[in-house]
Amino acid sequence: MRRISTKTVIQAVRDLAISANLELGKDVIHAFEEALEKEISPSGKAILAQLIDNAQIAREEKIPICQDTGLVTIFVDLGQEVSIVGGDFKAALEEGIREGYSKGFLRKSVCHPFTRKNTGDNTPLIAHIEIVPGDKLKICVVPKGGGSENMSRVFMLPPSAGWQGVKEHVVRTVNEAGPNPCPPTIVGVGIGGNFEQSAFLSKKALLRPLGSRNSNPELDQMEKELLEEINKTGIGPQGLGGRITSLGAHIIMMPCHIASLPLGINIQCHASRHMEVTL
C-alpha cells in the first residue's frame, strides 16, 4: 500500500481551490478567442474581448475570475492501493477548502437553505469519490457559481422521445436560461443511467477540455448537432444577442432501464473553473 497523509491532501485541495478561482484553463481562453472571431454581434464581440482581458487580469493580479467563487464539488479518483493516513479523508477535503477560501480571499457562498445563514467557511462541499485501480490519488476541484447551476435540469423522458426529444429538451433548457447562466456557456449532457446518475454524468461531462473531440464518433456527431442547434437560438454572449451562445456541448451516455430515458443537463457559465492534481 502507498501511504498518503491527510496533510498532503489538505495542502493539495487548498492550492487547487485558489488556483481554480484565479486561473482559467487555456482551453477556455482559446475557445473565447475562437468565439471572438466567429461572433457577428458587436455587443457579443465586446463581451468576449472583456472575458479574455478578465482572465488575464485575474491571473496577473491574483483576484478571482468571478466574485461568485461557488459551492465546491470535488471529484476524487482514489487508487485502491492507496492508504490515507493521519485522519479522516473527507474532513481533509473540507479543511483544504476552508483554508483555500480564507487564504485566497475567495467569497464564502454557502448557507442554510431556509435561514440563509452563511456557514462562514464555504463548507460543506460535494465530494464524488471513486475507487480506481492503481496507487495514485487524483483530486479535481470544481468551484461552480449559482447563476449557471440554477439553470441546470434533470428530465425523465419517455423512451419514445429518443435523440430528437433529448435535443429539444436541451435547447429548451438553454432558451429558458437565457442570459442568467452568463453565456457563452458550456452544456454538459448526461444521457442514460438513472435519475441521479444522469445529473452526475452531465456535470462530469463539463470536465472534458473545451475543443476536444468525443472519443465516441457517434456522440461526437451528436455534440456537433446539439451545439449547432443551441447557437441558432440567438441568445449570444450575456444573452444580449449573438451567434455564440455556447462554446461547447459535451455528452456522456450510458445504458439505462428499459422503461426510461434519463436526461441530465448541467449548464456551465463561461467561468468554467476546475483544477486537478495527481498525487
Binding site: I47, L51, A58, I65, C66, D68
Partner: peptide, 13 residues
C-alpha cells in the same frame, strides 16, 4: 444596465 457577468476581475478595476 447589464454589466458582464463573470468579468469580476476586469470590473473591479
Amino acid at each position: 444596465m447589464a454589466a458582464t457577468g463573470g468579468a469580476g476581475a476586469l470590473i473591479s478595476r
